[in-house]
Design a protein around this nucleic acid. Sequence first.
DNA 1: GAGATGACGGGCT
DNA 2: AAGCCCGCCATCT
Length: 114
Amino acid sequence: MSEPSFYHQIYRVVCRVPRGQVVTYGQVAVILGCPGAARAVGYAMHRTPHGQGIPWHRVINARGRISIKGDVYAAEAQRALLESEGVVFEDGDRVDLKKYRWPGPEDPFEFGGE
DNA sequence: GAGATGACGGGCT
DNA sequence: AAGCCCGCCATCT
């Protein structure tokens, strides 16, 4: 299409994550059809444009924790946003993925479709 | 075009 | 249990 860049697709997927739920970087990569591109997803999140209404705070690592490292404020903000959506942190800073993990799009072809 | 980056993931020590 | 290392991918400089 116009811009089949993964970045744009990543943002699109994140925007589909319902409020109160979260997804892992690796999962987003899988949804896009690139299992293993979790790193790229993280890179995209780092460059997530602000003011786009992208719920970037709903993206966490496979351990259910905030992976942000360079911006402690952003990390705390993410946690605050998640808690404000009803997400509960256990053990101090861990989210129960089996409870808040977004199952994914009902139509896998929505993103991985040709 | 090549090298370095990074908010990852899984495995091993 | 916690920390360290390697591999993966797309983007950036």
